[in-house]
Design a protein around this nucleic acid. Structure first.
Lengths: 208, 208
DNA sequence: CAGATCTTAATTGCACGCAATTCAGGAACT
DNA sequence: AGTTCCTGAATTGCGTGCAATTAAGATCTG
């Protein structure tokens, strides 16, 4: 019998996840320096997995590293990039949806609802960092459901670079936090009953 | 006085460049396993910079790595992804072009022509790997000219994942290799004399 | 003989140490 | 006073060794 029924993640993956959340939730501010030795002590590991984690996050666009000069939290790109990124996000997510729409099963809704439940709880207390986190988790789950690892990688490299805009949109476009939750529930409702075209529309409208 | 007037690249960067070219030029076939120790001996370095290089290339989509099981050259994704990626490439490259079009200077053409000269030489001897390499270099140079590092990263994460399609397109759409060169020269000619709209059209038509 | 299980060799993941590079602070010079 | 140069501390890049995990080969069983 396998002693570890759950997947054992490497130290690197755990650290990547941790720091990524710190950045996405705003616990680390733009331009903050990330010191390898300091992080190694904080996580109780050596510098090696830290270095690898920082490198991956740099590749994802969350961090910014110059040679021999450490890494910092990536600063926000020019606002103009929104005009490029938003349509691309729509393309990627609707492309993913189309690829698996006719194979959706009940378990999928269970999974997606688990995410939305967390979002609802966060909405009720106006916990915007968590709302944003679960919003990302929901859309990521859709892309991942396509089973095409390349799609998820493309999606991630796009979304993480415009996390600032992503975050601000939630404040600007929704008067009440719970409206964010409601809109996502509505999307799932269309998935349940509607045709593909309606589903694509519902998803696309949520991306702006 | 700086003893190294040229930028000294790190071992990692050199190895990344080397292996990336090996994959893009087809010296490494899909599914080929990359052994860290073997590569370390071949390059005459320790495993550390090799590991970091392999990780970065995995992030870029050229390699595919499972935990504790080494990395292999990424296999081609489903052909259907072309429908998604080609329009995205057009968006990214034309977006970049628009962002710097009115600040193009003579030195830019010098730089771009240097790339096209190499492409021409390769076309004359039907050296498709080099044609492809310089084709990528040309388009990458355009995106890089925008000065937005995020644009280049998005572009790379997209293009490298569909290198197979990219490569085959050159064989299918052009009877004579030199036509590939001619089309790129034509693009630069439009840049020199034409308006922005014509330039965007010329570039967009080259991406298919 | 097919299939499952155990054992062993090969490979990766991580820890640690040294050397090279960078950055900050102060002194010397214009 | 501002700029340049120099020096030292801090930090990153790389080399090396060990432990953990995996993959493959041999052995055993039905």
């Amino acid at each position: 019998m396998d002693p570890t029924p759950l997947i054992a993640f490497s130290l690197r993956d755990q650290i990547v996840e941790h720091i990524r959340n710190d950045v996405l939730r705003g616990r680390l501010a733009d331009g903050d320096r990330l010191n390898e030795t300091e992080l190694a002590e904080r996580f109780g590991v050596s510098r090696t997995p830290i270095r690898e984690a920082l490198q991956q996050l740099t590749c994802e666009g969350l961090l910014d590293g110059r040679r021999n000069a450490g890494v910092t939290v990536a600063r926000r790109p020019p606002d103009s990039i929104r005009e490029l990124v938003v349509p691309i996000r729509r393309s990627v997510e609707t492309f993913a949806l189309k690829s698996f729409y006719d194979t959706i099963v009940a378990d999928d809704f269970v999974h997606w609802n688990t995410i939305l439940d967390k979002m609802r709880t966060a909405c009720l207390v106006a916990d915007y960092p968590t709302i944003s986190e679960q919003d990302l988790a929901f859309h990521r789950a859709l892309v991942r459901r396509s089973g095409q690892i390349d799609l998820e990688a493309i999606w991630a490299s796009i979304v993480f670079r415009v996390r600032h805009h992503f975050w601000e949109t939630q404040h600007r476009n929704y008067a009440e936090p719970i409206a964010i939750y409601d809109e996502h529930v509505a999307i799932l409702n269309v998935f349940r009953e509607g045709d593909l075209e309606s589903a694509v529309d519902a998803l696309a409208k949520n991306i702006n």
